[in-house]
Design a binder for these strands. Structure first.
Lengths: 153, 153
DNA sequence: CTCCTATGGTTGACGCGTCAACCATACCGC
DNA sequence: GCGGTATGGTTGACGCGTCAACCATAGGAG
């Protein structure tokens, strides 16, 4: 195994660049639409989705972070911004005085309900409709393969 | 065409989430490795790559922005940070007194040379090696299809 | 009860990106 | 020359993300 296999060749590098750059453009488009349609960022949407599905529309901060796969610090900063806008509230936790509960505020629930249809429509228009059925399947498999490979590292 | 086709179904949504989330994890891994291996961000790398390939290791600011597809404002902010670290310099432009030329500094050239092999190796390890040949081809086609569809909007 | 550590959460600094405002020079019509 | 617009570039404010430091309470071990 000499140096030959160490570095990607021109074609592989091209696919790599196309792949991430396209992913980024796509992501920007979707977040841009969400933003202009509803004034929410994808982060807002993620948080509001999790809270909407939670019992009592409330979650312990750590559980929320774990549920959406965020670091606690990131969540804390984001909740601060969302709280300022009246989308959520923070309450003290009855059973653990260290803890905090995040509660969906009325404005947050309304914003989320208003956002979901346009957002899903954007996903269909910009992603699903762009691909053939086979490509959609392949996209799923590629994502799974990459993820599995990443977790093996 | 009733409402049936308007929103993505469960399986499509799942592929969508897997697709972007995996892309993000992958991007984070690559940028993290670049950062820890060489102290450069992907933005730094992009700028240094463009400058390295330019005649005289220098470019007009606008040309650089156009070449790497960045907004001028973003580039200006980024160059400010890179200049502070001694990776590049900014000089007045002889032929257009409004303009600025961006020059690769010695430290920048060295950093870039030190970064390229590890970075390409990471791309191979985390991306190319994770996929079969067919998947790699499919990934390229998917990116192309998405891009074409985006540009049609 | 008293330490000692683990856990829950917040904060501050900083890098990065976007947007809108801004300043200076260039260029064009007159 | 003069005035207006276009172009090149910077700046400031703000959202977002990470990291490291920090504070408070919880929950043992002795």
């Amino acid at each position: 195994m000499a140096g030959g296999r160490r570095l990607p060749n021109r074609a592989e590098l091209r696919v790599w660049r196309d792949f991430i750059e396209t992913g980024e453009v796509l992501r920007n488009q979707i977040t841009g639409r969400l933003q202009s349609d509803t004034g929410l960022s994808t982060g807002d949407y993620t948080v509001l989705l999790a809270l909407s599905e939670a019992a009592g529309q409330r979650l312990r901060s750590s559980d929320l972070a774990a549920g959406i796969g965020w670091e606690r610090s990131r969540l804390s900063h984001h909740l601060g911004r969302m709280e300022r806008r009246g989308l959520i509230r923070r309450e003290e936790c009855a059973t653990d005085s260290r803890g905090a509960e995040v509660v969906l505020a009325p404005a947050g629930g309304a914003a989320f309900r208003a956002a979901t249809a346009p957002h899903l429509r954007a996903v269909r228009e910009l992603f699903v409709d762009a691909l053939t059925d086979e490509q959609l399947v392949a996209a799923g498999e590629i994502a799974a393969a990459l993820r599995a490979h990443l977790e093996r590292s």
